[in-house]
Design a protein around this nucleic acid. Sequence first.
DNA 1: TACAATTTTCAAAAAAGATTGAAGGTTCAA
DNA 2: TTGAACCTTCAATCTTTTTTGAAAATTGTA
Lengths: 187, 187
Amino acid sequence: MSATDLSTVDTVRQSFVQLWGTLGPFWGVSPTTARIYGWLLSRPEGADATEIMEALGMSRGAVSMACRDLRDWRLLHFEHNSGSRRVVYRPETDLEKVTRRVVEIRKRREWDPIRDYLKEWIPQLEADPSPEATVFMERLKAIEALVVMADTMAETFLKGGAVGNLGLKLLVGAANNLPAVMEKTGR
Amino acid sequence: MSATDLSTVDTVRQSFVQLWGTLGPFWGVSPTTARIYGWLLSRPEGADATEIMEALGMSRGAVSMACRDLRDWRLLHFEHNSGSRRVVYRPETDLEKVTRRVVEIRKRREWDPIRDYLKEWIPQLEADPSPEATVFMERLKAIEALVVMADTMAETFLKGGAVGNLGLKLLVGAANNLPAVMEKTGR
DNA sequence: TACAATTTTCAAAAAAGATTGAAGGTTCAA
DNA sequence: TTGAACCTTCAATCTTTTTTGAAAATTGTA
């Protein structure tokens, strides 16, 4: 293997980072930001800004901005070691926390405003007897039903009831055709 | 009321269209496209390209492109009336269908590729005994667990089991503090 | 305090994405 | 066929978002 060959880990890491970057926008995260989080996930330890910028070929400023975004989403912890100004960026690896956080933020940004507006609009249209207003109102009510449902599901999930660790493990077990289900349910 | 005053319906419509446009990008739809769908939802009947472009102040081309996008998502039906070249764009108003469709497309675009890659990557890392590979692999397995869970939920939903009409009505009833839950559960 | 080692900021550049409008198609009715 | 009425396309333009990089700010040590 020559010096420029990549190890298995590096090859997988490269693909993983690229996929993560592609998918980021679907989650409301920029490609760069997503790539940094993906890269950090692929490493056993945290890293500092210099390592990240070298590994991913981006500027120091970009790394700083992206890491701040990630911290806002609570996907990244900043660690200060005494004796140095250096910040170690460590990714949140508890995916249940991560998912919870993403659901929480998206709910607040996307669903809650719809709900608030609907609360205003529906009564206004109710006061207008024209057929046009009636049809419009019916549609808004259908949307409200959907939003309420999504809200309820999100709340249930956020309260921790829906998807515990056990649930996750059971599902993975099932997916892998391993006897995890029997093990976990008391043999 | 002067000639330039907006009726209640028009005022609400205007706000609704604007909100829809703002939220569109969160769903992977451009603001313009989302505005057209919102505007159509607010009207009792379908509309042709000219009406849309005048109502929303966009070019004919933009309307045509956006409507094609919407049709690809199956959010819009194209209706050809005999005796005219005119196309009437009619929005899909069954929100259950719409939601199903959105879940289906997003699952295919976002989750399925992750799953496929993980199936490749995990065995590769399994073959590498280094601690770095092991940590990375553990993380990929955690992601897999999550994806499998999301997949299962999406499938359940798409199969129609999870959220039927009754579920919707019960939830809306509960949200409105109406006795719908008790009625429907037979008490 | 001054200095060195970092990170953070932000205006400007680049990239990505959306929109336009003129040219080109298609369909209909006569 | 033909012309009128519409819809569709796509290269050019405009807009928005993302990224950069150099200057400013911050922190730790002596």
